[in-house]
């Protein structure tokens, strides 16, 4: 199923946007807890993240894809915490994930900045000098 979603997403950006807004619209008016909605929305986010990571050329956009994947995990953690409300395990976990993701972005952007200074591009496909060194 993931592959189908990936295929759907990679067709064009429009379908990503459409699917995303559709899933947001589905989730917002929920008064009661429907596990499937969280599961499928997060699955969608995760697959979109993977496809962005695989399809896009620019390192910064690839990082955005990774960010989507992390947020898919967050959505699961926070959403399903309603089901296990006795402990706030999931919510606490997601806080850690958010902080770690911010740190990751800081490290990654610093490295990408350096790459850009040396190579004048931030596209990993164009940067291939180690083997010819």
């Amino acid at each position: 199923m993931i592959t189908i979603i990936i295929l759907l997403c990679t067709e064009n950006l429009k379908s990503i946007l459409f699917g995303f807004s559709a899933s947001v619209l589905l989730t917002l008016p929920l008064a009661m807890f429907l596990p499937e909605v969280y599961l499928f929305t997060s699955l969608f986010l995760f697959s979109a993240g993977i496809s962005v990571f695989l399809v896009k050329k620019n390192a910064i956009v690839m990082l955005i894809g990774i960010e989507l994947m992390l947020n898919a995990a967050n959505l699961n953690l926070v959403g399903f915490n309603q089901l296990y409300a006795a402990q706030a395990n999931g919510q606490a976990f997601s806080l850690f994930v958010i902080v770690v993701a911010a740190a990751e972005a800081a490290v990654a952007l610093a490295i990408i900045l350096k790459v850009y200074q040396y190579y004048n591009t931030a596209e990993p496909d164009d940067i291939n000098e180690i083997k010819e060194q």
Binding site: G49, L63, M69, N76, F80, V97, I111, I112, V115, I127
Partner: peptide
């Protein structure tokens, strides 16, 4: 120069795989 290239590739691979792992953990929690 080459240090940045190796570092960038390591980081992109690494962040991708830990994100996959994290999604697995979140499903486990779910």
């Amino acid at each position: 120069k080459w240090g940045t290239e190796g570092s960038l590739k390591y980081l992109l691979f690494g962040a991708f795989s830990t994100a996959c792992m994290l999604y697995g953990i979140s499903l486990l929690y779910a």
